[in-house]
Amino acid sequence: MIQNLRRLGLIEALSFLLLTGVAMPLKYLAHKPEAVKIVGTAHGALWVLYIGMLGVAFLTKKLPFTLALLLGVGSVLPFGPLLFEKKLKALESK
């Protein structure tokens, strides 16, 4: 469960990078708003999956409350899931 949460956090962070680094410039510089629609939708879906998986990890008692709370708050920050990568990796190896 924790390993999947870590992987999904990485994918979600990469989708944010694609959104801000590729799709947004395409929208504003190349006048291609469909790039943001596509990448933004994927990023939003990945975030919802991440929050869902975070909830499942907490409810199945594989994740302490404070860490779950930090990951939830961090999920709305740019690259937030990566901020707690070390803590998740340490928890995963237990």
Rank of each mutant, 00 (worst) to 15 (best):
M1S: 13
I2Y: 06
I2F: 04
Q3V: 12
N4E: 14
L5F: 01
L5S: 00
L5C: 04
R6H: 08
G9K: 01
G9W: 02
G9F: 00
L10I: 11
I11D: 11
E12W: 14
E12R: 10
E12Q: 12
A13K: 03
L19M: 05
T20N: 09
G21I: 05
V22R: 02
V22Y: 07
A23C: 00
A23M: 01
M24Y: 08
P25Y: 10
L26I: 09
K27S: 05
Y28H: 13
Y28M: 09
L29K: 10
L29A: 15
L29V: 13
A30Q: 12
H31M: 14
H31Y: 13
K32L: 15
P33Y: 04
E34C: 07
A35E: 05
V36D: 04
V39D: 03
A42T: 11
A42V: 15
H43M: 05
G44D: 01
A45H: 08
A45D: 10
L46Q: 06
I51G: 04
M53I: 06
M53P: 07
M53G: 11
G55M: 05
G55R: 06
V56W: 14
A57W: 04
A57E: 05
F58C: 03
T60S: 13
K62G: 12
P64Q: 06
F65T: 09
T66N: 14
T66L: 15
L67G: 05
A68E: 08
L70D: 09
L70F: 11
G74P: 00
V76K: 05
V76Y: 07
P78V: 03
P78T: 01
F79S: 06
G80E: 03
P81M: 09
K86L: 07
K89L: 15
A90D: 13
E92V: 06
E92D: 09
S93H: 13
K94E: 15
K94I: 12
